[in-house]
C-alpha cells in the first residue's frame, strides 16, 4: 500500500512538473508575442479626414524687372530683420525690382488682414511672406 502511494505521489509530482513547465513556457511565449498564430480581427482606430480640393497656383512672372514684390512679416520675432535683409539683397541684385515691406495685422500670426490683402491684390506682382521662427 505504502509503495502504491509512493508511486502515485511520484506520478502526481511528475504531472505537476510537466504542467508547470508547459505553463511557464506558454507564458513566456505569450509574453514574447509568439503565443499563437491564430488570426484575429481588429477595428481601424482612425477618424475620417476631409477631402482635399486642389487649387490652381497663380501664374508665374516672366521677369522680376519692373515688378513690385511685397515683403510681408507675420509678426514673429525676427521676421522683420530677415525681410529687411531680403530687401537689401534685391536692391543690390535686382535694382529694377521694387520691394515694399509690410507687417501683417489681424491679431495673430495666422489671422487674416483683409486691408493688406486688398492692397496687395491691387499693387503686388509677387509676395514673399516670412512665417514664424
Amino acid at each position: 500500500m505504502k509503495r502504491r502511494n509512493s508511486v502515485m505521489i511520484v506520478i502526481a509530482a511528475l504531472c505537476l512538473a510537466l504542467f508547470c513547465t508547459y505553463s511557464t513556457r506558454n507564458s513566456e511565449a505569450i509574453a514574447q508575442g509568439k503565443a499563437s498564430a491564430e488570426k484575429i480581427t481588429v477595428l481601424n482606430p482612425l477618424g475620417t479626414p476631409p477631402p482635399i480640393k486642389l487649387k490652381t497656383m497663380a501664374p508665374r512672372l516672366d521677369t522680376l524687372d519692373g515688378k513690385t514684390i511685397y515683403l510681408v512679416d507675420d509678426g514673429f520675432i525676427g521676421g522683420d530683420n530677415l525681410l529687411y535683409e531680403i530687401q537689401d539683397w534685391f536692391k543690390a541684385n535686382h535694382p529694377k525690382t521694387t520691394t515694399i515691406f509690410k507687417r501683417k495685422g489681424g491679431g495673430g500670426f495666422d489671422a487674416e488682414d483683409p486691408a493688406l490683402w486688398a492692397e496687395m491684390k491691387e499693387k503686388a506682382d509677387g509676395i514673399i511672406i516670412a512665417l514664424g521662427h
Partner: peptide, 24 residues
C-alpha cells in the same frame, strides 16, 4: 502644379485581420 479637382480620402479599411503580434 496646374492640376485641379478633388482628392477624396477615407480612413482606410474598416478592419484588419492578422496575428496579435503582427497587429501590434
Amino acid at each position: 502644379e496646374k492640376r485641379s479637382g478633388e482628392i477624396v480620402r477615407d480612413k482606410g479599411p474598416a478592419t484588419f485581420t492578422d496575428t496579435e503580434e503582427n497587429l501590434r
